[in-house]
Design a protein around this nucleic acid. Structure first.
Lengths: 337, 337
DNA sequence: CTGAAAGCGCTTACAG
DNA sequence: CTGAAAGCGCTTACAG
């Protein structure tokens, strides 16, 4: 089969214990010995058997990711890319934990993690009421939730600063003279949706503007829902001169509705999105939007989990700053020009 | 810690060997003994330690998935869902193998698989020239490529019947009287794109129709590219009365371009997509399209890999049938009505 | 039908 | 600084 630690030891003329020590960074090894061992390792391409390591040590260097199957949104793949960075940095591998299995009566998700010696779990893409996470949290397996505010003795979460995101969007629009600023609120009952809605209200208050409930419409992050929501907002009177959307896709749908109504962006209505997906730069005019640092979310989630695993007691909630990116869909209000 | 096989053996009043035999389905166990052991297992929720199993047996029950980071397209998540089914059926877990690592000089992807005792690998979302798979194929690790025709002693691939897909689209359009049928060919240099292009040519030939090169435009599976490609097709004369698109997104972009040109779908131009994503049912009129059985692709890829692992020598290429779903965007050619 | 024992490939006190 | 030995939790011939 593939080379094992005994082969390396033999080739280097030392004991397996010494090889192990070199590989595990013990400082009590003679530099010459170390060098020799390392050379053999290099030559043979030896890599320790993960199963044996996991069996004897406490570390399996395996993390589990548990995500919704509806990961079609680019957000997920971007976060995943950030996670890759973290994984490489910390040396973990990721095992994919299927959602289908979670509800299986025979099957305990937690026991599965234990049998696989999973050191920590990332949960990703679920709403609070979608699944019962009690068993997972009670198990004591370190867990990081992305975009869901769950906290436990060994559980925490990470998310963008959603509240500040929409607030900054409103502030921007208010600063350039808008007074009737509508909102397309995506999934307002979700953790993320609620904060974006609150951020909008706070922003309006800060700017001394009144929130009218008929200036708030709901969507679900899709272009279609943004289109429909905008149509309903355009039915109100007086018309809003700007709209904050909780997603880029929604914003693009909103732009279509605005144009179909014979109005222009940003001439008649300014539009601000949320996410800063690639498409935000490619629509015309380019979309002003609240940028989420998806890469950081991914990377930090792994780092946070790693810290939990090492009992370093990281802060139970990590909030990643958002950044308003001003492009072409927001312009001074008409009555200001 | 968690219960182990010794705890179970003690509780059941038998040896660990017996417990192991029960759990591994040996038939030489007394039914009463077996029952007792199973009861204890049930009560304690005991699950064998995967690392120990992997170390002693040859099976790690771990498969690796190696996919491009750009997995934003719904196609990927649907295939992944199909893979979940297969995994559950066969009892494997999936480990996610990061792309970033592949090119790392220090790092051998194959060795990584070996150190993790990965029994087989699924490769997914790559073009042939994107990565060098030689080391992987030479390693003898069973590998299934999705949508890329790589074959080796222990490597095979799975894909939709792309050729039949576009051919059936052309046949359908020809049958309802179209004679000028254009094509939007997505990534014609890729394995999948090439076959869809060939299927189009074959379909045209079958129908006795001439292929005009100015009736073929290129796209990249995006709505935007479909939009642009359609614009260029509409610049030709005489105008095509139908267009086959190699993606639903592209088809939707094409529909936009057609309408912007003052024409109607399907009144002036019929449109056929490829994929049958959810959005195909939600556009108006609903999109006629070539349905890919993404679920089957996912499930069968795991089954195929499992068969390779068991040395059952499955066919090296599995082609999943496509199905033409006729909806509202295709109608008899104008001169036939 | 059952169990004692060897061994999978490692790591980690421990003795030297 | 180095190595012999125990042990992680299992499975599998093998003997009974």
């Amino acid at each position: 089969m593939t080379t094992n630690i005994r082969d390396v030891a033999k080739a280097a003329g030392v004991s397996v214990a010494t090889v192990s020590k070199v590989l595990n960074g013990y400082t009590t090894v003679n530099p010459k010995t170390k060098e020799k061992v390392l050379r053999i390792v290099q030559e043979t391409g030896y890599r320790p058997n993960a199963a044996a390591r996991s069996l004897v040590g406490q570390r399996s260097m395996t993390l589990g990711v548990f995500l919704t199957t509806g990961l079609a949104h680019p957000f997920f793949s971007h976060v995943l890319m950030g996670m890759e960075e973290g994984l490489r940095l910390k040396g973990y591998d990721l095992i994919y934990l299927a959602q289908l299995s979670y509800h299986n009566r025979e099957y305990s998700f937690v026991r599965h993690c234990q049998s696989r010696n999973v050191e920590g779990v990332i949960v990703f893409g679920f709403q609070r009421d979608e699944l019962n996470f009690d068993e997972l949290i009670d198990s004591g397996i370190p867990t990081v939730f992305i975009d869901l505010d769950v906290i436990g003795p060994r559980a925490g979460y990470i998310s963008s600063d959603n509240r500040a995101g929409t607030r900054s969007a409103v502030r921007h629009l208010a600063e350039i003279g808008h007074r009737r600023i509508a909102l397309i609120s995506d999934l307002p009952d979700s953790y993320v949706g609620r904060l974006r809605l609150e951020g909008y209200r706070e922003g309006m208050k800060e700017a001394g503007l009144e929130v009218r409930e008929d200036q708030i419409a709901c969507g679900d992050y899709s272009r279609e829902s943004g289109y429909r929501a905008m149509q309903s907002l355009l039915a109100a009177s007086p018309l809003p001169t700007a709209v904050v959307c909780c997603s880029d896709y929604g914003a693009i749908g909103a732009m279509e509705a605005i144009r179909e109504a014979g109005l222009s962006v940003p001439g008649d209505v300014s539009v601000v999105g949320f996410d800063d997906l690639e498409i935000a730069r490619n629509v015309s005019p380019a979309l002003t939007t609240v940028r989420q640092d998806t890469r950081a979310i991914g990377r930090r989630s792994i780092e946070m989990l790693d810290a939990m695993i090492r009992e370093e007691h990281p802060a139970p909630a990590v909030i990643i700053p958002t950044e308003l990116v001003v492009r072409g869909t927001s312009a001074p209000a008409a009555d200001r020009r």
